[in-house]
Amino acid sequence: MVNQATKAPLLAVNNLNIRFPSVHGAVHAVRDVSFTMGREKVAIVGESGSGKSQTGRAILGLSPGQVSADSLIFDGIDLQRLSSKAYREIRGKRISMVMQDPKYSLNPVMSIGKQMIEACQIQMKVSKKQALARCMQMLEAVRIRQPQRVFKAYPHEVSGGMGQRIMIAMMLLSSPDLLIADEPTSALDVTVQLQILAIMDDLVQDTGMGLILISHDLPLVASFCDRILVMYAGRIVEELDASKLDQAQHPYTRGLLSCLPSHATKGQPLATLERQDSWLDEALENRGLRV
């Protein structure tokens, strides 16, 4: 089992397409997205509307649009053929997702402890006592200093950074093989942001979990992840090693980097991004940009 997991990719996505039908014709939100990943840290980066979140959701079977793909294979399981019952066995247990804003993802009228135990019991089918022990263990793993106090608190009583740590703790209860983090830190302060990333980094190192980090912050993910997929208008326009971000080829990636204030000389206007329609049609392979 272990041998197989290291050889075969953890996740293989082949020609994923997502369309949203509307009265003005279908909106093609994700176009021919293909990638494979092992137990590593992969980032999906792009602007709002580039389809990065929809890609993450489609893997979990949560996209409200029309999803089609040549194949969607997670650890040898064909996700497209799963019944909804079988999908539930995977969702949350083997693939988890951390959403952007803890304010909207936690139940406001349930104490944190209660919702954690509920999740734990459904996923792992353990006794309440075992669930409690597991929850405490996970809260400590995300470096919450007083897990007892946090356990009794309601979501509005904790700070944003704390809420996000609780979300991550909840997602990790069942030790998933793949964690999809959709902008897990963009609502947080810079120092807290880095601390949360450090926690996820440890989990990847220690448990061999795969991590998909969805973000709009290109320099940040470059310093954190192993590989970066850059998305523009639903398409992966460039795939590169995080360490080689400065060698990025695609004008979109370069544009995203050069429009940051830190790259400009003070007093000089910032470079702005000139979008080109041709980016929409080019296939990645033709440009030879695939790693």
Binding site: V190, T191, Q193, L194, L197, A198, D201, P219, L220, A222, S223, F224, P261, S262, A264, T265, K266, G267
Partner: peptide
Amino acid sequence: VDQDGKTYPKQAYTKQLNLASQGYDR
């Protein structure tokens, strides 16, 4: 802020804020 957009913080808090905005470093 000098002409190159650089600041020279003296307080520990500001220094940490400065470091944190430079990206992920374990």
